[in-house]
């Protein structure tokens, strides 16, 4: 009698791979992608993507920074407050697949959003990345100029990267009723003003997220045929839901959709991979120990374990761990966490 499970690796079985191991000793959680120190690695997505970018840079990877800070800041920490050096371009958090798709379309000249400038108390903000200018700008023209420069940087990034690390964060978003542009934050939170006639809530479903990611992937491959994509799902729960229900099931719904999309894409494309940081942090074997007391933000221990798993196998020999005197990782910048500031 042939049993199709016979001969499978120990990692295929719950007992040997999980139940009988300490969490820190789990192994072979993923099949690491091939990465060379010269590969230009771009990052985008929700705040958790910053950890992977920072860890790669600390280990000598070629972290692509297509929008470096102009020489006007006192130091790198001040530049980070203005969105420089956080991701490969100064787009702030890209929470949804649709936001990523629309950004790529705009950068490649295929889309022109109708509503780009938001005002707040006499200052002007980029509606599609309102957090990158903490004090806003004196006029709308400066916002548009900064956006034009930003889009040039995004185009360069799309055309020149070798690998993009993209962390899927949310399915819930707010969109313009005029042209379907989705915003990273709800109008009226960081800037702008919520108008029920102009803005609508959307909770993107599996088919929509998959279609958005597929469209983004097709667009990327058009301008950069050799590009590869490494997907992760953010383990950080929703700060709030606008769906009308409880935030816990809303979080599980969102993350389940994103996890399924990432899995589908990785299964269907040889040059798209999935790294299970989401499972490491949120899976019940960790018993929630990798969350801070707010049960939302991920603690340093969780980030460390994720990075140890990321650099498992062949990647460990390519990217040496940073020395003891390495600079500490900067704190992740998460715009979503600010949506309750103005309640």
């Amino acid at each position: 009698m042939h049993n199709p499970y016979r001969g499978r690796e120990p990692r295929a079985f719950w007992n040997s791979a999980v139940a009988e191991r300490h969490l820190a000793d789990m192994a072979d959680l993923w099949d690491p992608i091939a990465l060379h120190p010269d590969d230009r690695i771009a990052t985008a997505g929700s705040c958790f993507a910053q950890h992977i970018g920072n860890a790669l840079a600390a280990r000598g990877a070629h972290f692509l920074d297509c929008e470096p800070p102009p020489p006007v800041f006192a130091d790198a920490a001040e530049a980070r407050r203005f969105g420089y050096g956080v991701f490969s371009c100064r787009y702030g958090n890209v929470y949804t697949a649709r936001q990523m798709l629309q950004l790529a379309q705009e950068a490649l000249g295929l889309r022109r959003p109708a509503d780009v400038v938001w005002e707040r108390e006499g200052r002007f903000y980029d509606a599609l990345r309102p957090a990158v200018d903490p004090a806003g700008h004196a006029n709308a023209d400066t916002v548009l100029l900064a956006r034009r420069l930003h889009l040039g940087a995004v185009r360069t990034m799309l055309e020149t990267m070798d690998v993009m690390v993209f962390t899927l964060g949310l399915t819930e978003c707010w969109e313009s009723q005029v042209d379907g542009t989705v915003y990273p934050t709800a109008p009226g939170t960081l800037a702008g003003s919520f108008d029920p006639a102009a803005h609508a809530f959307r909770n993107l479903r599996h088919g929509e997220v998959l279609a958005d990611m597929a469209a983004f992937w097709a667009l990327l491959k058009e301008v950069n045929p050799d590009a590869r994509l490494l997907l992760t799902v953010s383990p950080v729960p929703l700060m709030a839901t606008a769906g009308g229900g409880h935030v816990l099931p809303a979080t599980v719904y969102s993350k389940s959709v994103l996890r399924a999309v990432a899995g589908d894409l990785a299964a269907d494309h040889s040059d798209i991979a999935y790294f299970p940081s989401y499972e490491i942090i949120t899976g019940h074997p960790s018993r929630g120990m990798f969350f801070n007391p707010d049960l939302r933000t991920v603690n340093a221990m969780g980030v460390d374990l994720v990075m140890r798993q990321f650099f498992a196998g062949p990647l460990a020999s390519v990217f040496a761990p940073p020395g003891r005197l390495a600079k500490p990782e900067p704190e992740a910048i998460c715009e979503e966490g600010r949506i309750t500031e103005t309640l």
Binding site: V72, D133, H137, E341
Partner: peptide, 17 residues
């Protein structure tokens, strides 16, 4: 996030930008 109440160093950096 009242811009008028922004820390002076942030407003200065914003002006330089």
């Amino acid at each position: 996030r009242d811009p008028a109440a922004m820390p002076a160093d942030l407003m200065a950096a914003s002006s330089r930008l």
